[in-house]
């Protein structure tokens, strides 16, 4: 039973991270129908920024909770700035282009960013400081759940709730929903579509950075390649839940997390990524609209 619980909680943790990244995919897709390939890279850059800032601050003598918050905050700011810039450089000039063009541009951007970090930092794994300390009250259950896992799950829950409220009630959130439904109509109603798209990228990137900081602190090491795999898996989560749907992204993330956790725990740990990709292929072939998505048909 403990083993099952451990796998369950492990899956919940992974799933939360996937969900955080998947939210960015799903929001961007909802608004401009683009698979933002570079999104995984933004997550990776968030993790790297946090690592660098935390190292500098800890050498300056800072530690503990305030270090986590400060490093995390700077990582979120930087990731958002990257997301904003990526959109302006690689996607905005291609709004009117055929569908394949922005997709190829996105792949190019992803390759560029990976190698940018590889060249400016290192190709080796860097050890990430454990920013989340072990809580005392968690000691009795520490054999099945670590404190960092608790933090990850709680943060994801809070962030998702805040995001939902933001999209539901804020002015720009309403504009986002309008744009997602019908871009031309939103424009006619006076919504500044360019601004909405920028904000979407900024928020999505910020969320990815939160995921990056948390998981790096949990696992303890990062390299330039973590964004690629995490990106595809988070995209799987977004599709699984129904791309364009925010609750869908969270649900998809959790389902994927559990699938991986249980499959590697009970079947074989060699094929961890195969299960994720297999699920992706399976879902796209049999239910491309996802669990919560609706089917759309092209206008003729």
């Amino acid at each position: 039973m403990d083993y099952f619980l451990e796998l369950f909680l492990g899956g919940l943790t992974r799933g939360s991270i996937y969900a955080l990244i998947a939210l960015g995919y799903t929001m961007v897709y909802g608004i401009i129908e683009l698979i933002n390939f570079a999104h995984g890279e933004v997550y990776m850059i968030g993790a790297f920024t946090a690592l660098i800032v935390a190292s500098v601050l800890s050498l300056m003598g800072m530690s503990g909770f305030s270090l986590l918050i400060l490093a995390g905050l700077i990582a979120v700011i930087y990731a958002s700035a990257y997301g904003y810039t990526i959109e302006k450089v690689a996607y905005k000039p291609l709004r009117q282009a055929p569908r394949l063009s922005p997709l190829i541009s996105a792949i190019g951007m992803s390759i560029f960013l990976q190698n940018y970090v590889l060249l400016s930092q290192t190709s080796d794994f860097l050890s990430f400081p454990a920013l989340i300390e072990e809580f005392e009250f968690m000691e009795p259950v520490s054999h099945i759940m670590r404190s960092s896992e608790l933090v990850i799950v709680l943060t994801t829950a809070v962030v998702t709730a805040l995001l939902t409220l933001f999209i539901k009630f804020s002015r720009i959130g309403k504009a986002m929903r309008a744009t997602a439904q019908d871009k031309t109509m939103a424009m006619l109603l006076g919504v500044n579509v360019n601004r909405v798209i920028s904000v979407t990228f900024i928020i999505g990137s910020g969320l990815a950075a939160v995921g990056g900081v948390l998981i790096s602190s949990h696992i303890g090491q990062i390299n330039f390649y973590i964004g690629f795999i995490a990106g595809i898996k988070a995209f799987t989560a977004a599709v699984l839940g129904g791309i364009g749907s925010i609750p869908g992204a969270v649900l998809g993330g959790l389902v994927l997390g559990w699938t991986e956790s249980f499959a590697t725990g009970y079947v074989s740990s060699d094929y961890e990524d195969v299960f994720a990709f297999g699920l992706l292929v399976f879902i796209l072939i049999f239910r491309p609209a996802g669990i919560l998505g609706r089917t759309t048909s092209e206008k003729v």
Binding site: E33, R99, D273, V274, L280, V281, L284, I285, P288
Partner: peptide, 28 residues
């Protein structure tokens, strides 16, 4: 056969997934 009825961007992702699956199988 199963993937070609998918829309362009989904096709891209599925083929990417297939590519990785084949490599992972060869590796393991």
């Amino acid at each position: 056969f199963p993937v070609l009825r998918l829309r362009g961007d989904y096709l891209a992702i599925v083929t990417l997934g297939f590519g990785e699956i084949i490599r992972l199988i060869l590796e393991n």
